[in-house]
Design a protein around this nucleic acid. Structure first.
Lengths: 150, 150
DNA sequence: TTTATTATAGCAATTTAATCTCAATAAATA
DNA sequence: TATTTATTGAGATTAAATTGCTATAATAAA
């Protein structure tokens, strides 16, 4: 399997774009982070590592990473975008707790059937889907019960 | 079944909030719109109807409507929130075409199973879920093929 | 290897959605 | 009807994201 850097290098070449140090450094960092991130935290992390890259460059690089399937946007309903690297990972969905805000990932094989049905029934060609679930984790349910009991 | 106005009136009473003309007018308009809307379009529509309500009031009212289950946020990945009234409607999901941007709604009974599994397997209590699908509608697929053939 | 071309980086300015401040107002209730 | 206080509207403010511009660096051509 090609590395994420190779995938991006190829993508960039095909489009007459350029393989720059900044893009390489940003992409490397993204694949070192094994959690979700946003532009701010990514910028801060790079800075911590002595890598000087402007936020503007991050904002300009992300759509490219997304376009070639290395990264995706994640909606945590908190006013700005979050991201995660997806290349080399199984598709998964997110469940965010409305109490503590913790995000848990889960796989859901059944969703492949949904994509299939959309193709068969409506003639859509599905590129991707995203299931976001909101609710309460076990700990927050418990905490809620105790609060109510008082 | 209670009307949306009654539901909101009750919600407002229970919380010591106030049943204002502005909130009534906004809510009525939202239930007249049988499509998705955003703050701008809702504000514009009200204006067209001679209803003077500020955007600030719309921004302040929406979280209340959402909290009592009359309205929900919809993510169309275009930089700002969209909304739709849901009270009295079946739960549905959205498929947005990456070509023309058209949004199509579809029902997906299978998703109830997903919620159930999250409860059984992880102990989560699911409040709501949202499946967003992206792809290409039949028309855009055809247009794409023709373009490529040239 | 050197030169020419042009996409990209960085910075600051700008845009836009959304939130907040505050004085005036209107809804609830005593 | 008077009193209390949540809500309104207008504009200021915040924060995320985008853009304009010049210098720079990546690539192609010589």
């Amino acid at each position: 399997m090609k590395s994420e850097l190779e995938v991006f290098r190829e993508y960039v070449r095909q489009r007459g774009l350029r393989w720059t140090q900044e893009r390489k450094l940003i992409l490397q960092k993204i694949f070192e982070i094994h959690e979700h991130f946003d532009v701010d935290s990514l910028h801060w992390l790079l800075k911590q590592n002595g890598v000087k890259v402007s936020k503007a460059s991050i904002y300009r690089a992300l759509p490219l990473f997304i376009d070639c399937g290395l990264v995706r946007e994640v909606d945590f309903s908190d006013g700005h975008w979050h991201y995660e690297h997806i290349y080399g990972h199984k598709h998964h969905n997110h469940m965010k707790c409305l109490g503590c805000g913790e995000v848990r990932e889960f796989e859901e094989p059944i969703l492949a059937q949904v994509d299939q049905r959309l193709t068969q029934e409506y003639g859509y060609s599905v590129v991707f889907h995203q299931l976001e679930v909101r609710g309460y984790c076990p700990a927050c349910q418990k905490a809620g019960e105790e609060t109510r009991a008082r």
